[in-house]
Design a protein around this nucleic acid. Structure first.
Lengths: 348, 348
DNA sequence: GGCTAGCACTCTCATCTTATGAGTGCTAAT
DNA sequence: ATTAGCACTCATAAGATGAGAGTGCTAGCC
């Protein structure tokens, strides 16, 4: 498996033991305790030699000369990719989670919020749910409401049941009944198309229309373009941020401050979660693999969720690099499936 | 002025000096520095006597026997109510704030978010904006969209330009064109009424209708009732939580954890902000005056904001009890006016 | 009576020292 | 290859000490 190809079975065993021990204790682990707890028939001295090798290869680090070893981000990477036992959740655990997840009927947004709470509660870390910019979503319907003067309220409904509304300011006053006509016209044009498609379509039509003189269509295209131009930026629901403070590695206030600031700066978070989304599979980002500087002491486990066969967004857990990957990964995986199921039901 | 009636002018001067000093230094303040810095023509010993009196009256406290004095919550209360100089913002400051507040066109929600950011940035504390349960808001329009099966998407627009959407599940399938008829009917009934009024009206009509046999009206009333039954719970936008960590008094991780947990538990926050709202004026809640235990080390300054003559919500700042009230209070006051102005413009 | 100087006393905080113990790296023996 | 033994390193915790800030009280002064 790539990076760990050069390791002997014994080295792999030791590395696994060290990482597991460190994950549960948060203390640098010494040769003695590895030899003792993990039933190797080897003396501490031998373990020390192995550890020195692993350190040289970059999988382990020592905080200072006379301390035990601590996994590096690379070490965790190897652990997650090829050392860890990937035990799926038991039936009992799954049904426990299902019970905990009270599917709110009502707004889809509540479902997201609930999911982030669920994730943070179960992982005792931070739960995140990304509802990405909805480029890929299919439009079900668009409506306009005249507010006042040139202001028009645009309401956009996707097939997945999400609702986006925004206000646009026009150059001219268009009365409500004309807005209705425009909406009807646009709906026939765009229904079922993805947002990105719609945008393309409108531009194309607009170009064709230059020559023509159908006032209604002209207005419709213009309004449509304004409506769909909106940022449509991803939104991210974050839950359980306070859990981060339980981790001993973040006793330092300064470090914590920067992490919390990063959580508030959602746009960065959106960007990275967006990247995870493109993987269309469970993704782990460990420590310094993260491009966001402030989050380089944290790890991220994400999985995509779907509405029917539409890829909708990502959800996951942010926790210390020293997180229990073997527990969190199946948890995130299952939660994504759970959310997908609910969303699919709603849309059906 | 009530609580401070018994104080001599000199005692008031000393108390003011101590509080101001403590606010800017975060250190217990001693008799010596009061005498020196504040140009009293009194010796430290005399100041000490006065301080002892003030302590006895409950305005000051000492962390330990040989430390300086620290204001109590009661002390801050007197300070805010009758000691503090209530200097309003200068023109320059006001225009600076106005420049900083980029009024986002688009969704009203963004305006709230932006306002909480503005508040937190300027106060270097936590900014909060409450959009309360919209009972008092007037309905502009209601619309229904058929989603799938018995599921119907309800969209509710208020005169202030806020949009609420929720999904209701009916007992029967109603096709879109009938939904449209129902919407038209309901709109004539409810337009311009406040939500609480609408609810009353629907119940009343429903009772009258028992006898009658207009199927459409019956359906409309039922759907209307379901639509307006939703929790409509207040929502709160919180910005700048990380700022709390800068305060020396929250170096203790455990204390901070509970504060952050309280921020996430928004429902409590909503409740207290709702109370502030009923004051219809600038409100200060100092330390232990707060009913939320976790926030009893913090103070809250709030002011209501309006949309036209409609009271819409509250916004404000949460910071350490040791906050610069004389700066924060005018700031909150002005921001509320600023937000009101924007909202009023949008609605006009 | 109100004010102040002086002084003993208290308590925190920073600094230093010391001891402890976990853990390493290396060498030499098996 | 593995291990026992040993010298060495370094963080951490526990006293010890001293400085400094501040108080409360008493006695004297205007």
């Amino acid at each position: 498996m790539g990076t760990s190809a050069g390791l002997t079975e014994r080295e792999r065993d030791v590395l696994r033991a060290i990482i597991q021990d460190y994950i549960s204790s948060a203390e640098p682990v010494g040769s003695r305790s590895v030899a003792r707890k993990y039933g190797f028939r080897l003396s501490p001295a031998t373990i020390r030699n192995i550890m020195a090798d692993l350190a040289e290869l970059g999988y382990l680090d020592q905080p200072h000369t006379s301390a035990g070893r601590v996994p590096t981000d690379l070490g965790y990477r190897v652990y997650v990719d090829s050392l860890m036992s990937r035990r799926p959740l038991t039936r009992a655990e799954e049904s426990m989670i299902e019970r905990k997840f009270r599917p709110p009927q009502g707004e889809v947004e509540d479902l997201m919020r609930e999911a982030s709470k669920l994730l943070s509660g179960l992982s005792r870390s931070v739960g995140v749910v990304l509802v990405p910019r909805v480029d890929q979503l299919a439009v079900k319907r668009i409506e306009f409401f005249h507010l006042a003067g040139e202001r028009v309220l645009v309401i956009l409904i996707t097939t997945s049941g999400q609702v986006h509304h925004s206000m646009v300011i026009l150059d001219e006053v268009i009365p409500q009944d004309e807005l209705n006509k425009i909406a009807r016209l646009l709906n026939t044009l765009v229904e079922g198309l993805s947002l990105s498609r719609v945008r393309q379509l409108l531009v194309k039509k607009m170009a064709e229309e230059k020559a023509m003189y159908d006032e209604l269509l002209r207005r419709a295209l213009k309004l449509g373009q304004k409506s769909f131009a909106g940022d449509m930026e991803g939104e991210v629901y974050i839950g359980g941020t306070a859990n981060i403070m339980d981790q001993p590695e973040f006793a330092d206030v300064e470090k914590m401050r920067s992490i919390f600031a990063a959580f508030e700066e959602t746009s960065k978070l959106v960007k990275i979660l967006d990247q995870c989304l493109t993987q269309e599979a469970l993704t782990t980002i460990i420590g310094s693999e993260n491009v966001i500087r402030e989050l380089q002491d944290l790890s991220l486990v994400t999985a995509p969720y779907w509405c029917g066969e539409h890829l909708l967004g990502t959800l996951g857990v942010i926790g210390p690099t020293r997180m229990e990957y073997s527990r969190i990964i199946p948890l995130v995986d299952f939660t994504a499936k759970l959310v997908s199921r609910h969303l699919t039901e709603v849309a059906s």
